[in-house]
Amino acid sequence: MNILSMQNIRKSFADNEILKGISLSVDSGEVVSIIGPSGSGKSTLLRCATFLEMIDSGEICYMGKCAARTEAGGKAVYVPPRQLRAFRSCCGLVFQQFNLFPHYSVLKNLTDAPVQVLGCSREEAEARAMELLGKMGIADKAASYPCQLSGGQQQRVAIARALAMKPEILFFDEPTSALDPELTGEVLKVIRQLAEEKMTMVVVTHEMPFARAVSNRVIFMADGGIVEQGDPLAVFDDPQEERTRQFLRVFDR
C-alpha cells in the first residue's frame, strides 16, 4: 500500500530553488535512505513532507488522500488547517537536534501529545509510553529530564515520542549527526529494530553502512533532485551516475 506520494515538488527560499521538481513515493513497510551532499535539499524534502515547510508547487498525498496539490494557477494549495492536522498526525519526524521538551520529564514528553492532541486517556498514554521506552531500552529513565540523559538516550526518547503518536510513517533527519560514534550505534540499533518490525521509514543519513544494511531503497540526491535510486547494493557497489560515484568516493577513504 502506498503511504506517501510526493510529485514534482518545487520549493524555493527567496530566489534560491532548493527542490527542483522532485518526486518521492514510499510504500508501507519500506525503509528508504536518502543520502547526498549537504545543501542538496534532503532536509527540505523531509520538512515539506511533514508540513514544516509549505511547497510552492507539486502534490503531497498520504494514503491516497492529497494534502496539497497544484491547481490551475500553478501554485500548490493545501487543505484547510483542520484537515492538515489530521495529515500531520499520520507522520512523525525525528530531528537531528532531538528537540525534546526540556521542561517535561521523559514520560511526559511521550504522553503529552497523545493526551493533548489525540485525546488519549492518561493511563492509556502512559502504558504505551512505558512500552515504547522499554523497547528503546530506557524504561528506567521515565522520570528523568532530558538534560540528565546522554545524546543517544535523548534521541531514543525522541524516537519514542514520535512513535507514541502511532504514525503511519516516520521520518528521520540526520538522527545521528549530533552524536559521537559510540552513541550513534545505540540509535542506529533502535532504527534497525523498527525496520525489522516493518515500520515505514524515510531516513536522511550520512551513515553509509547503515543505509546499505537496513534500507530497502537508497536515494542519492544532489542539487534539489534525485540523481539515482534503487537497491542499496546496486547504488553503493555499482552506481550508474558519475555524480553518485564522486559522492561515494569520499566515504571509501
Partner: peptide, 15 residues
Amino acid sequence: IPAGQYEAAAVLGYG
C-alpha cells in the same frame, strides 16, 4: 527559545 521547540510541537500536532 529555539525554533526546534515550535517545530517539534508542530510535528506532534499541537495547535
